[in-house]
Write a protein that binds this DNA or RNA. Sequence first.
DNA 1: CATATTAAGTATCATAAAGAAACCTACATT
DNA 2: AATGTAGGTTTCTTTATGATACTTAATATG
Lengths: 158, 158
Amino acid sequence: MPGCPVEALLGIMGERWSFLILRDAFYGVRRFDGFQQHLGISKKVLSQRLRKLVSAEILRRVQYQEHPSRYEYRLTARGRDLFPVILTMMRWGNRWLAEPGQEWLELVHKSCGEKIEPKVVCNHCNEPLTLARVQALPGPSATKGAVRALRNATAKSK
Amino acid sequence: MPGCPVEALLGIMGERWSFLILRDAFYGVRRFDGFQQHLGISKKVLSQRLRKLVSAEILRRVQYQEHPSRYEYRLTARGRDLFPVILTMMRWGNRWLAEPGQEWLELVHKSCGEKIEPKVVCNHCNEPLTLARVQALPGPSATKGAVRALRNATAKSK
DNA sequence: CATATTAAGTATCATAAAGAAACCTACATT
DNA sequence: AATGTAGGTTTCTTTATGATACTTAATATG
């Protein structure tokens, strides 16, 4: 039983290739061979990860042909809803790990035409969320460990 | 050499415990023993991960006492800037993995006092970023594989 | 004075996960 | 008849993780 939502997410997505498979899915990759060639992952591990992502309902295994039967993997609503996680990862990687002016990729917003730097904000006041301004409180399912950690955290933040 | 910012980030943060160590750091944990007890990670792996996070400048190893000398681990600016990634993970985990009404933790915005659901928006137009409205284009450092994947992605998105 | 305890690790060995390469199945193509 | 294609599985080797014991330097306890 996980003790926090991050732990729960990592129980599904925490293994070595899971986020890269997801990233490829966002790029439009759907087929076993596509993932395998693009990622350079071993077939064994790929099939294990795909099975896990399917059983977690991040991907759906869909037959796209009979005789012989062939399947592909498509994002579910749950899977698509991981897009914000990938976006924040992309922003951080571009910001801190790319040579300046040498980013690997550029995100463009089709709505406004601008180059995006994804920003995480409060859904109420639309202010960017910083560590100092966000307080984590144990919820109804918090474990004892989490309650203790959060109590310490809020005690120390000054 | 990584081919995309997500890959680059995962080169640092991709191992089993790294994100949980980071989450604990956001909760205010700083000491070896604190991480070890709270996470239930083996000391060997913890010391390997901390070393890696320090060498990636996510954490700084700071002496907090002499005789005997003791060190603690503090978030750097780089590390603090991973907060948005953790926030989007928390939101996703709370949304899809918690029993309804039984979330593990609640985020409160000290600025507006409201319960937060972190939202990822465009830094120009402030609209939420959805898969359909974001276009990824290869940047200056994109690998051939990435260029091909992105071309396919944009070709297929309709 | 001897023994515990604390904090931050290392060392050693057993188990689990990942990677490489070959093989399998069902059909289509040359 | 042989080759190719797509989506895997099997087997074996290498690497990573986990459990337990030990180390070091100082303080606290009986």
